[in-house]
């Protein structure tokens, strides 16, 4: 997160905040007290904790290098997908609880994205299952190797990475789908949803959002890391890929304007179609190529 802001600032010719700024923000918010809206009910109180716990659990399912994830079993990607959906759904309910029109707007936009992201993630995983067999997420990502000499393999790797990268942008609420830094509530999605969240709750929301981006970045990097390297090499590649991704996000943010809100959903379909393409490429490869 910090790196993204830095990249953006450098690109804009400024010096930019410190790399640890997001941590400072969280630490500051932890010390603040909370203000709840009069209309807020019980969901509003528990939602940030639940959402954070769900995201953390999802993070535990992400494979780590050569060793598998903290928890790993056949079909664990489904619970991963649903935990992320849960964290999103509960935040949406909390936002609607306040009953302000801004938050309703954000909630409505945010949850509409899930409708297209879920099939996209399912298909991305599906393409890996197709290639690597019906296994756990860790095995799937681990087994995938990119053979640079085989053009099919490269095409598939690139397409899957693109699909995951766009999911990262959407889930992490970044430009071009959402702009966390605008000054008008009408133009935000994720940030406007948490308008009335404050103090510790807000800290949890920010931390959860950053964690989500980290999860997707890790998925991409493990996807690209080939099998059978030493732990040191894997860590190095991992750091390299995540750093590149962060810089990439910042770069995208500086170069692209946010899309128009009502066109946004059409663009969220992109990962869906890209993952379909990847699957098609896989099938074609298996049938012997064109």
């Amino acid at each position: 997160m910090g790196l993204i802001a830095k990249t953006k600032a450098i690109w804009a010719g400024r010096k930019g905040p410190s790399l640890l700024q997001p941590w400072y923000n969280v630490a500051k918010l932890l010390r603040k007290s909370e203000v709840h809206s009069h209309t807020a009910g019980f969901i509003f109180r528990v939602a940030p904790s639940l959402a954070l716990a769900a995201t953390l659990m999802a993070a535990m399912l992400v494979p780590f290098g050569a060793s598998s994830a903290v928890f790993s079993f056949r079909g664990d990607f489904l619970i991963f997908m649903y935990l992320l959906a849960l964290s999103k759904g509960i935040m949406v309910l909390a936002a609607m609880e306040v009953g302000s029109s801004f938050e309703g707007m954000g909630a409505s936009r945010e949850i509409s994205f899930t409708a297209f992201l879920e099939p996209a993630f399912f298909l991305t995983i599906g393409s890996m299952v197709y290639a690597g067999g019906f296994e756990s997420m860790g095995d799937l990502f681990l087994r995938h190797t990119v053979v640079l000499s085989n053009h099919w393999s490269v095409i598939i790797a690139v397409m899957t990475s693109i699909a995951l990268f766009i999911m990262l942008l959407v889930e992490g609420a970044r430009v071009p789908f959402d702009d966390p830094a605008t000054h008008l509530e009408l133009t935000m999605i994720h940030e406007v949803m948490v308008l009335d969240t404050s103090g510790v709750n807000l800290a949890m929301v920010h931390y959860g959002a950053a964690l989500k981006m980290q999860i997707f970045a890790s998925l991409i990097s493990y996807f690209l890391i080939p099998e059978g390297h030493s732990p040191l090499a894997i860590t190095a590649i991992y750091l390299l890929v995540t750093t590149t991704l962060a810089i990439l996000v910042g770069w995208v943010e500086s170069l692209m304007p946010r899309y128009r809100m009502n066109r946004n959903l059409e663009l969220v379909v992109i990962p869906l179609s890209v993952s379909l393409l990847a699957l098609a490429a896989l099938i074609v490869r298996n049938l012997g190529g064109i």
């Binding site: 603040k32 909370e34 203000v35 709840h36 809206s37 306040v98 302000s100 938050e103 510790v200 709750n201």
Partner: peptide, 14 residues
């Protein structure tokens, strides 16, 4: 979280 922060009530941001 309950131990950490104090909670007060206020109107929603309009």
């Amino acid at each position: 979280k309950r131990r950490l922060g104090k909670v007060s009530k206020g109107p929603a941001w309009g």
